[in-house]
Amino acid sequence: MSIPANLKYTKDHEWVSIEGNIATVGITNFAQSELGDIVYVDVDTVDETVSKDEVFGSVEAVKTVSDLFMPLSGEVIEFNEGLEDEPEKVNSDPYGEGWMIKIELSDESELESLLSADDYKELIGA
Rank of each mutant, 00 (worst) to 15 (best):
M1C: 04
S2W: 12
P4E: 10
P4N: 11
A5W: 09
A5H: 14
T10C: 11
E14H: 11
E14P: 02
G20Q: 02
G20D: 13
G20I: 01
I22T: 13
A23G: 01
T28D: 02
A31S: 09
E34N: 12
L35Q: 00
G36D: 05
D42Y: 03
V43E: 03
D44S: 15
V46N: 02
D47A: 15
D47G: 13
E48F: 01
T49G: 01
D53E: 14
E54T: 10
F56D: 06
F56K: 00
S58N: 14
E60P: 02
E60N: 02
K63D: 05
V65W: 11
S66M: 02
M70G: 03
S73N: 03
E75T: 15
I77F: 06
E78G: 00
E84D: 15
D85T: 04
D85E: 15
E86M: 13
K89L: 15
K89D: 14
P94D: 04
G96E: 05
G98L: 06
I101S: 08
K102M: 09
E104A: 13
D107Y: 11
E108H: 10
S109N: 15
S109A: 14
L111E: 05
L115D: 06
S116K: 05
S116W: 05
L123F: 07
I124D: 07
